[in-house]
Amino acid sequence: MSIELVCPAGTPAALRAAVEAGAHAVYCGFRDETNARNFPGLNFSPDEMVEGVRFAHAHGAKVLVAINTFATAGAMDAWKAALANAEKAGADAVILADLAVLDHAATHHPNLRLHLSVQAAAATPEAIAFYADTFGVKRIVMPRVLSVEEIAKLNAAINVETEAFVFGGLCPMTEGRCSLSSYATGKSPNLTGVCSPPEHVAYSEDRDGTATRLAGFTIDRFGAGEPAGYPTLCKGRFAAGGKTGYLFEDPVSLNAASLIAALVKAGVTALKIEGRQRGKGYVAEVVRTFRAAVEAIDAGGTEVEVGRLLAGLVEGGRQTSGAYKKTWR
């Protein structure tokens, strides 16, 4: 069974770009608080989802719908509607995190294939077996805290598929267990599907350059001409213990391209590319490159061959293989 490349689609245009670039599956969400990339102007209306699934299926690709936030107390209708709309659109699976949403899906949409979102942070055989046995979850998106060796051991101990992030933005915090954004802004991935929401981001220029502030907290400062990343709280510079710098994570993005073969050997079913907020040009380029690499690996290609295919993505920017190598910790 060949490895599945799961690619991001923040908009219908990005979905088409990803499918045309060779994605085996795309993941996307509805334009509301039911998905964890609830950024303004992003995501799909129910009609766009129908059309997106039709387009993907016509090209032999799957659509996985992320309904991966935690339902608001007393207001679960949006999550129920998202499940119903995903099934109606013909989605190949839904990606869920909340116990209530999982329970509802397992009870009311028994034919819908369920994947467990990284937001559920299931990292042990016990937790994974619980989700599989209780709700019939078929695939786990693994928390970005495990090393390749740990993933291999985990896969040997569980009976469900695993999906691993290989490229894109990297959360240094365990996803689904982080309230840093709501501490500063009142909005967080678990509460509202956003982290470091743009309406709380402000730039101000002064003598020392540009300050990036999130709800009044300075999360970084840049001198003139110094490059800056998206102002995500945990990627900023802070002062602690007499030192100043990137305390939580350097401004790097994840690139586990060199570990694809090792991940496949560790039993991973699907490789996931992050970036539903990224542009279609970027998505297409990354997908095309990874598809070529995956095919080369499937065909038994050498490491050198795969490395050459991925060289374009590796050079230049600052990248890390993240938790897949234990030294990251």
């Binding site: 402000a202 110094e226 800056a228 990343g229 998206y230 907020q277 542009g279």
Partner: peptide
């Protein structure tokens, strides 16, 4: 579509003030 939000807006190729959202 040459540029996207992450690569452009916040890379200081342009400067933004007011409502970032």
């Amino acid at each position: 579509g040459t540029f996207d939000g992450d690569a452009l807006f916040f890379n200081r190729a342009i400067s933004v003030s007011g409502r970032t959202d």
